[in-house]
Design a protein around this nucleic acid. Structure first.
Lengths: 144, 144
DNA sequence: GCGAGATATTTGCAATTGCAAATAATGCTG
DNA sequence: CAGCATTATTTGCAATTGCAAATATCTCGC
């Protein structure tokens, strides 16, 4: 009737969930949660982002992110400051400690990526990533 | 330092999250949550599964699933019965109402899949799915 | 430069979540 | 067939989650 094993959303979700579970466990020894890592990685890519940009980038709801980011500030991983020029927005930046923590995690993150891609030709991995970008794009601006 | 846009876990997570968000909103009008749909779809694929099998299949934690399934039972979507031959296990089966609800949702689910795959050649979509299966397999049995 | 509407973030709140402990039933070993 | 490790599920509990409402700031048009 409905074959899950060929249903894209299912295949995406279960790979993502497995990856998240496994890597989340790994992250315990770095003293951060998976969500915190996502914020670190997003800020490492582009520093000085606003909260709402970060929400879009990380796929974390902004209300969740607001609290998450506050916890990370208390942990000393990042700093928040009202944007100059717009007192509504909050600009986020990694602290030195945050950058250092991120640097420590990155190799482990890359290791997991390699693990996930084991046995897949680099060209195929590239193609896979391109398709995932395309899929995300296809879903932009959908309101249900 | 770390390019998110080429990092596989990130790309998988954000596609999955967007898909989940959009389709979850769609499901409101069918009177089920996204997680409930996942259970319906998993049971439609293989009826009579045990709770723990379903947990593996759906990537939902078994304690969460235990409560979720109970809610679905109260909603009349499925039935639980102790497995005969093993009094520990619970076997789950869709009720007629559950099957009917699933049948109503499936076309919509397929529509979302097509939406996600827009502009992607069928052969590429096939390849993508195969790779996702491979990735999932690569991660099996990882303990962090 | 004053309001009305738009935008960014925070907070209230009820619900879901997942770990760990408890419970229940089985299977193995001697 | 008794005891003990194993497996399946449920439950306790603290934490996270996400929607919606509240708050704060900005931007226009006039």
């Amino acid at each position: 009737m409905f074959d899950l094993t060929r249903y894209l959303p299912y295949l995406i979700n279960r790979s993502g969930a497995k990856l998240a579970l496994a890597f989340g466990r790994e992250l315990v020894r770095f003293g951060v949660t998976l969500q915190e890592w996502r914020v670190l990685a997003a800020l490492a890519a582009h520093d000085g982002q606003r909260l709402s940009d970060l929400a879009t980038l990380t796929s974390i709801d902004v209300s969740t992110l607001s609290r998450l980011v506050d916890r990370m500030r208390r942990k000393g991983l990042l700093a928040r400051a009202r944007a100059n020029g717009d007192g509504r927005a909050v600009r986020l930046a990694l602290t030195d400690a945050g950058r250092q923590r991120t640097r420590a995690i990155v190799p482990e993150a890359r290791r997991y990526e390699r693990l996930a891609l084991r046995g897949i030709a680099p060209a195929d991995a590239q193609a896979l990533k391109r398709l995932l970008v395309r899929i995300y794009g296809n879903l932009e601006g959908i309101e249900g």
